[in-house]
Each structure stands twice: as structure tokens, then as C-alpha cells.
Design a protein around this nucleic acid. Structure first.
Lengths: 334, 334
DNA sequence: TTATATATGCTCACAATGAGTATATTTAGG
DNA sequence: CCTAAATATACTCATTGTGAGCATATATAA
């Protein structure tokens, strides 16, 4: 009776760290399945309800076993009923997997991890890194392809309306016309590109692309991942970029002692944006998020910076704030 | 091999509407299980991965079947590996249920629903409604009980530290001392009360309460629910209260045409707070969220108000904003 | 010594926000 | 008809938060 309802729960973790001013994600280079040979995967483990009382306990357990990494902050992202969206063929027949995505932060230890490796997350999302200005891939590839897609015949009857909606989606997601870039829309952008058939995952799942072509003619925007793993990663990015602004999660990625500029660099790496330096300091200090250690940084290159540490007490004072920052338009004061 | 990993997915929906200025939740009065006789439950349905491609489709499907309600906005909340927290005894032996909680909004049709009924959500959370000022239950019952709990012997070794943390949690959650009340902390408050053993669910799960008593001696704060359903509802409240401030979801609960004051009343009902009327109008109008219909409200009692409708176009203009509002301290201008 | 690079302090204009006052338009009741 | 009460709506004002830039301090390299 329950046979067709029984499923296996898979836990996927987007484990994030920042080192050398780059946000990195732990990936398993390429998995057994041949259908997606060479495509990276997020670390994955099944949930065993007998052994682990909660999903998070189960997650921490196998991550610990497999990677020896100690996770700091852990947050549930989303539960998907269909792993690879429309292509369930890769599952074992008769077995249904529901996957629960998690975001986890860890301080970057560059240990060698058996089977897994740290990879710059912008390799999967080259359009998300605006620290050096607008990524050329947007104007060179993405926007033209999306325009084509938006102008295409739609399946649904209200022809003009559908086109207009597609155009609006593009404008809002990629900051065309005078719309501002919103770093938190990473997931929406991924989904838009997927809908438009511009990602290899979409081709894999049999969606027509912008030129109405399927399969190998799909454009290749960013590195693909197995199943819906790139989507999970996009969810993680969106969530983390949002969260950093109202909760002090950035400190989970910092060493015990750091300079304000190092903190800023970490935040910028995650947001993929530049931040106004003086205002960033003002914000961090006024919010009472840090306290001076007295020690100075011995780095070379200019006046030494003071080292700070995270003020854990903020968590008990006000409802601990985050780093509400705005991108700095000019690159002058970087 | 997979036998111990196989689980059944349960979908729980917190279906919310607002009518007569009261936020209401659809509940199933009392379920079959006798262990929790008389405790309300959220509508529940199993997920069948063969019949439905995604979790949300599955959810919409059985809600439609069972209630004939048409859901507008639907959002996934959280996935729990343990339904009743520590008490899994109520599950059928050998069957594990992972439940996925959903928030759904619907315009309040007061149809008679077979087996289900609309219930004011503040009956489950009497401390969350501050529209008539601070609810007396807080100072009369909650804070004293929490103080007792905070002062209690802790199990963990660092005695003083644990007490301090409990006191801080209480302060931040319930706005003791000079901490401001935060309407979005509904979930944190529920979890705090649960931890402190002040809810019947906690007693059911065998947690000691503030006086170190278990079972029937537990205080009764708000109406309890089956399994972890009240927790899911608290999650829904927190999420909705947060979301309303940056996404135009409130309109999902409004009729096609409404006055600004009706909109305000709906928002206030959800937030459990009073809002400054003039500033509310300014906000809603400046954000371009509404447009005039020209028609006037024929209600009695004073100058007629103009009817507005939701401006769907905002969704395509800017990244559609919500109703960023602050509680008004004085009740003067309500 | 000077150029350069970074850190840090400070100012200023402007927008957003909280709160209040003033006025308009209705009904209820004499 | 007049007035009080109730509600709707317009406008003002002080305060705060935020974006941006200038100025100064302290290091290293040539």
C-alpha cells in the first residue's frame, strides 16, 4: 500500500568557505553515473531515519565522516521532489529520491579532502561576480540569447503577453535598461537561464533552448553540475547573500582575529560586489559587531591595520544585525 | 538494503486567510490518534512521487481535493525529519514520516469545509497579538515562568553561563527590559516556550517544565496542536510576517478592490501590531503598489474611502517591494 | 625624501522614516 | 439645519540612515 509512496531522502550540502578572497564550494569532481560524466556534484548522503533523529544531525554526521570538516553554521535551504527536474531517468528504477538542500559554512582549511575539492563558486555562475565590474559574459552572451528567447514564439496563446513577461523577467534579473543589479537574485537568474534553455542542465533535461535547439547545441553558460545541484548552489548563494545583511553569519567564515578590510573582502567575495570601504567600517563598528584586539596586522603594503574580533555579545543584546551594505558604484575608493 | 532508509513524505499546509480582521488558519479539529485526543491538526496529505512530479503539485492537488479551496500564494517552509520531535511513538511502527511544511494564502471564503474549519491563529499564540497592547498573558504567566526556568539548575556544567543565556533568550524573544518586541520572532518564541517546557506539546514529548514537572502539571499556554503542527504554524507566521515587508503578498489576501484602511487592517492582523495610518498610506502609494479605481467605499461611519486595486505591474517594474512598516507606539492615531 | 599604498577619521547632502497637525467628508442625533 | 463623532486624506517636521567623497595617518619601496 505504501510502496508507491515510499521514497529515499537525499541530503545535499552546499558547503561554503572563503579563502584568498574567493568563495569556494566543496564539490565531488565527477560521479559514477555516466549520463552526466564529468559533471561536478555536491556532496551527497542518504538520510537514515533510524540512525539519526533529525535531518540536520544526519547531515552533520556524514559530512563529518566523509570530509573531516567541522561545519559551523548550517541552514536548511529547500526540499525538492524531483532531483533532476524533468529527468528522473537517472534514478534507479522504482526508487524515488527527495532531496533536501543545505547551506553550510566552514572556515577554509585547505586540507586535502579525499574525493572532494574546493572550487570557486563563480566558475558555475560567471555572471554573478561583479567585483571587477559587469562580467562581459552578460552583454556578450546572456542578454543577446535571452532577447532571442524573449522574442520567440510562445506555446501559450496570449502571444504578446508572454513575450512581454519574458522580457520583464530578463530586465529584472540581469539589470537591463536602468534596472539595478540585485546580488540576491542568483537563484532567479539561474532559473531564468534554465527556462530559456541556456544551461547544459536544461539541454540534458530535454528543454528547447533559445534557438529552439535541444541537446548538444545548447550554449554553455558556466560549469554545469549533476542533477539539480547547480540549482541548489544558486539557492545557497541567494540565501547567503540575503542572510549576510541581517545576521552576522560572515564571521563564521573569518578566523578569530581579522582586519576590517579582510572582513570586507570576504563579504565582497560572497556578494560579488564592491563595497564602500569607509561606510563598511562605519557600519560594522556602529553595529557593535566587532571589538578591537589591540594587535596590529603585520601585512606589507601600507599602514598596518588593527585586528578585530567578533563581539559574540551582540547576539544577546539587540536582535543581532548583519552587514547592510550597498554596492559602491564607483571603483574609486576600493 | 534501503528498507531502513525508506520514508514516507507528509505534506502539511498552513493555509492562512484573513477575515473580519482576524488571521485564520485551516485546521482539522481532532484526529484519529487517541494519544492527542482533541488536539487540532493542520491539513495533512502524503506525497505520492508517482502521481505528482513535485512536492508543490502534490500539495495543491490534495488540498484542492479535500477542501475545494483555491490556493493563491504557496511557499515551502521547512522539512522536519522528526514529526513530534522526540515522540515518534505515534507513528506506525517501522514507518518513518518526514514532513514538509507549507505556507499557503487564500482569500477567505467562508464556505463550510468538510472536516476542516477556520480558526483564529492567535488562539494558538495568544502572546503574539499586540494590536490591543501587550497581551496580559506575557507579564502574568510567560515572563514569570521563564524567569523561573532561567534561574533553574542547568544540566550542562557551565552553570552561570547557561542561566545567562536562557535569560538573554527570554529578553530578546519577549521584549523584557528595554528590548523591543519583534513580530517576526514568532518561531523563536514558540521554540523558547517549548524548550522551557511550558507548552503541552513539550509535556507530551516528555520534557520537564519550568518547575521540573512533567506530564499533566505543565502550564497551558495557547491551544496545542498535534505532532509538531503548532511549530509549523509558528514557522508560517514568522515567514509571512517577514515576507509581507519585502514582497507584495498581502494582496493575495485581499479582494480585487479594497480601501487602504482595509489593507492596513489585514496587515495589522498578520503582524499583530498597530501601524501608523498616514505613514502606511504614504508607503503603499509611493511604492506604486496600488492604483485608484475611482469607486468609493459605501461603508458607514465617516468619510467614504476610495477603493484601490493592486497594481500588478509593480512586479515587472522594480523588484516588487512589500510593506515596510513599523509598529506605531501610540494608539492615538489608529 | 618622495612616491605609493593602505588605514582611518570626518563631513555633507539626500532619502527614508516616525510622528504629529490640519483639513475634508461622511453619518447620527438633537 | 447644526453639531459631534468618525473616518479619510493631505501636509509638515525632526531625526536617522546611507551613499559618497575629502582629508589625514602610517607604513614600505625606491
Amino acid at each position: 500500500m505504501h510502496a508507491d509512496k515510499a521514497v529515499v531522502i537525499g541530503l545535499n550540502a552546499a558547503i561554503v568557505t572563503v579563502s584568498d578572497d574567493q568563495p569556494k564550494i566543496l564539490v565531488v569532481p565527477h560521479e559514477e553515473t555516466d549520463g552526466a560524466s564529468g559533471w561536478d556534484a555536491l556532496p551527497f548522503g542518504p538520510f537514515n531515519p533510524v540512525r539519526h533523529r533529525t535531518l540536520e544531525i544526519g547531515l552533520r554526521s556524514w559530512v563529518q565522516e566523509q570530509t573531516q570538516l567541522e561545519l559551523g553554521y548550517v541552514e536548511q535551504l529547500y526540499t525538492f521532489g524531483d532531483r533532476g527536474r524533468h529527468s528522473l531517468e537517472t534514478d534507479a528504477p522504482g526508487e524515488h529520491v527527495v532531496s533536501v538542500g543545505y547551506l553550510a559554512l566552514t572556515r577554509g582549511y585547505d586540507e586535502t579532502l579525499k574525493g572532494a575539492a574546493w572550487c570557486d563558486w563563480y566558475r558555475y555562475f560567471p555572471w554573478e561576480d561583479w567585483r571587477e565590474g559587469k562580467p562581459p559574459i552578460i552583454d556578450q552572451a546572456i542578454v543577446p540569447l535571452l532577447r532571442e528567447w524573449a522574442g520567440r514564439q510562445s506555446e501559450a496563446p496570449p502571444e504578446e503577453l508572454a513575450r512581454g513577461k519574458r522580457r520583464d523577467r530578463m530586465r529584472l534579473c540581469f539589470g537591463v535598461d536602468d534596472v539595478a543589479w540585485d546580488d540576491e537574485k542568483a537563484l532567479e537568474r539561474y532559473e531564468l537561464l534554465y527556462s530559456a534553455g541556456l544551461l547544459l542542465e536544461a539541454a540534458r533535461d530535454g528543454r528547447p533552448n533559445a534557438r529552439g535547439l535541444t541537446g548538444k547545441h545548447a550554449p554553455n553558460l558556466g560549469r554545469p553540475m549533476q542533477f539539480d545541484h547547480r540549482r541548489i548552489l544558486a539557492t545557497a548563494m541567494s540565501r547567503l547573500r540575503a542572510k549576510i545583511k541581517y545576521r552576522p553569519v560572515a564571521f563564521e567564515l573569518m578566523p578569530p582575529s581579522f582586519t576590517l578590510y579582510e572582513l570586507q573582502k570576504t563579504v565582497e567575495a560572497l556578494l560579488g560586489l564592491h563595497v564602500h570601504k569607509q561606510n563598511f567600517r562605519r557600519l560594522v563598528e556602529n553595529a557593535g559587531l566587532v571589538e578591537r584586539t589591540g594587535r596590529m596586522s603585520t601585512r606589507t603594503g601600507g599602514r598596518p591595520a588593527e585586528q578585530f574580533r567578533f563581539r559574540r555579545e551582540v547576539l544577546n543584546e539587540r536582535p543581532a544585525p548583519g552587514l547592510k551594505l550597498a554596492p559602491s558604484r564607483s571603483r574609486a575608493n576600493s
